Simulated scan of single mutants.
Amino acid sequence: MNIRDIHHVAIICSDYKVSRKFYVEILGLSVIAETYREERHSYKLDLRVGEHSQIELFSFDNPPARSSYPEAAGLRHLAFEVDNIEDAIAHLSEHDIKVESVRVDELTGKKFTFFQDPDGLPLELYEI
């Protein structure tokens, strides 16, 4: 096996229009493709993250809620690299998105913080 990178992360949202606006207009991810699947009454939005990765944003009728925040078994959070964490926080704050206090990773000395997408999915900003 030769794993080279993470290709994509899939996210199921409860309100497609709200989540699309959040990821495209607020976070600034570019749209690769947007598909409406009539038979499923579902959208699939492919978003570019950096040079090599993607987020697949799905909509489904009545998806179950996340079981807990954020310590449920399984994926804990999704982290985005940023050059300047203070600038990123200021941008999110301009859009009324609450961001936790900045912390410093005790192992790397790098700054990081958390915020949430419209469905409460925990997202991290990590300063590189």
Results as ranks from 00 to 15, higher is better:
Ile55Lys: 04
Glu124Asp: 03
Asp96Gly: 00
Ser53Met: 13
Gly109His: 07
Phe112Ser: 05
Glu100Asp: 15
Leu29Ile: 08
Tyr126Cys: 04
Ile32Lys: 15
Val9Pro: 00
Leu92Ala: 12
Leu92Tyr: 07
Arg40Tyr: 09
Val49Gly: 01
Lys21Val: 06
Ala72Leu: 11
Val31Ile: 15
Phe115His: 03
Pro70Glu: 07
Val49Asn: 01
Met1Leu: 12
Leu107Tyr: 00
Arg40Ser: 05
Ser59Arg: 02
Ser30Met: 12
Leu57Met: 08
Val18Gly: 00
Leu29Trp: 06
Lys110Ile: 00
Ser93Gln: 15
Ala79Trp: 03
His8Cys: 03
Glu51Leu: 14
Leu57Tyr: 00
Ala65Asn: 11
Phe58Ala: 01
Asp119Tyr: 00
Tyr69Met: 10
Phe80Ser: 03
Val82Arg: 05
Ile97Gly: 07
Asp119Ala: 12
Ser68Arg: 12
Arg40Asn: 10
Gly50Trp: 07
Gly120Asn: 10
Gly109Tyr: 01
Ile97Arg: 14
His41Lys: 15
Phe22Gly: 01
Arg40Phe: 10
Pro122Phe: 08
Ser19Asn: 07
Asp96Phe: 04
Asp15Ile: 04
His7Tyr: 10
Glu25Ala: 12
Thr108Phe: 04
Leu27Arg: 06
His95Ile: 06
Asp46Val: 14
Val82Gln: 11
Asp15Ser: 13
Pro64Asn: 02
Leu29Tyr: 07
Ile128Lys: 09
Cys13Lys: 06
Phe22Asn: 05
Glu124Ile: 02
Phe58Arg: 00
Thr113Ile: 08
Leu78Tyr: 09
Gly50Glu: 08
Val104Ser: 04
Gly109Asp: 06
Asn84Glu: 12
Val102Lys: 11
Gly74Met: 09
Ala33Ser: 15
